[in-house]
Design a protein around this nucleic acid. Structure first.
Lengths: 224, 224
DNA sequence: ACTGCATTCGAACGAACGTTCGAATTAGCC
DNA sequence: GGCTAATTCGAACGTTCGTTCGAATGCAGT
């Protein structure tokens, strides 16, 4: 089994026309693939990865069943592309937002806000990421798991900083995973018509979590 | 479509032999069905509802493919039976444990402990309940949703009591759903070899959640 | 041994599955 | 217009799916 990331399409893409000032930011191929990924995300969200058939994806994207296979070589790789792109983007945005912010409580709040904003703006993709986490196998699964681990480590770092600065006592592991639970569970209940926007929700969950973590017994300072 | 709950097997079960002092608490039929449900729970947990085939269930339970249909009339009803039994049991146990406890903080802690204890003692069943919540359709889905709603309302009641007694200010909806998220997410990460038992975990999550909810700004008492 | 019902099974059903292939169509470039 | 490669498609492949059916087996009461 080859590396899931490396392109398997050997034939080169169309070369960009000479002097055109980039009327489209990506090749036609990339655009079409992105469209298919978007439609497939909706279908996977609604019917689940196993429950969605290639014929469902064909219908949703308006392309013939066989035509889909010009853009990816298997249903599993399609899910992989969705998950990898979604997860990479959220990590990338997080890093950009954390840069230049020093206060450790503020940094945790940024983590929560970034997660919830992206979650609510891309609900379908995030549900597919959360809910179909076990659907990929071997190489595909490993690559997504690596991104997940990086994301997890970042959050652990933020909380360990907070803990050290303020001399708090709690299990970082339980705290981080509880926070992920609070945030990721949203896809099971969020209703844009009754629930607030991402910023308010991030405030509310941030309050709940940070108070819960910071109201704990501090270490006495004669403990080292 | 008939009521999913009512038995469709018309033929009566074997009548209990006359004077025997209940050597088995249930009929042979019920025992065998329970065995099949237990094996099916494991398979659904491992491969997902859609991903598990009737032939997988046949293999796991050691019964022929056709034989399974003597005990239930469809794969969907099998999932329904698992979800309904699991959810009913957890609600029933919760009610028993809450009876006679007056302190409202203690009652919330009991809710958390009951949930986590059952979750960790029946991980496979609870994962099937949490993860396959959308797999049932129409009548089947409605009946499980009714139990879920009752369970949700109980938790809302506990938190509203706490809120009133202590004059707290927070969104009950967000708090309850955040708590469910913290607890239900466990099935994605809990590892019995590294994580503590249910009681410690309930303490830790109870601290995190209750501090978060109670450390909030209290209403001034001249507000009514 | 015989009867009647509960239980189990092998074999098959039609439908739907993911994927493939060769031909048709389209779009950029001389 | 004609050439070439990129793109799309209809039709089919072999496999697996959930479910059904009639026959076999087990077992209790007579």
């Amino acid at each position: 089994m080859g590396n899931p990331s490396t392109a398997t399409r050997i034939s080169g893409r169309r070369h960009r026309s000479s002097g055109v000032p980039l009327p489209t930011p990506a090749t036609r191929y990339d655009q079409r693939l992105a469209e298919i990924l978007a439609h497939a995300t909706d279908v996977f969200c609604k019917k689940g990865y196993e429950g969605a058939s290639m014929r469902d994806l064909s219908r949703a994207s308006g392309m013939s069943l066989a035509g889909l296979y010009y853009y990816f070589e298997s249903k599993e790789r399609l899910l992989f592309l969705i998950q990898k792109h979604t997860f990479s983007t959220i990590v990338e945005r997080l890093k950009a937002r954390l840069a230049g912010v020093g206060d450790s409580e503020q940094r945790v709040r940024i983590f929560i806000l970034n997660h919830l904003e992206y979650f609510l703006a891309n609900q379908a993709a995030m549900k597919v990421l959360s809910h179909e986490a076990e659907a990929l196998k071997n190489g595909f699964a490993a690559e997504v798991a690596a991104i997940k681990r990086e994301y997890y480590r970042i959050c652990v770092g933020l909380l360990d900083d907070l803990k050290r600065e303020r001399g708090l006592q709690f299990s970082t592991r339980i705290a981080v995973l509880s926070l992920f639970g609070m945030m990721n569970w949203i896809y099971t209940w969020h209703n844009p018509r009754v629930d607030a926007d991402a910023a308010s929700m991030a405030d509310e969950m941030g309050d709940l979590f940070l108070r819960g973590v910071m109201a704990g017994t501090k270490k006495r300072k004669d403990e080292h």
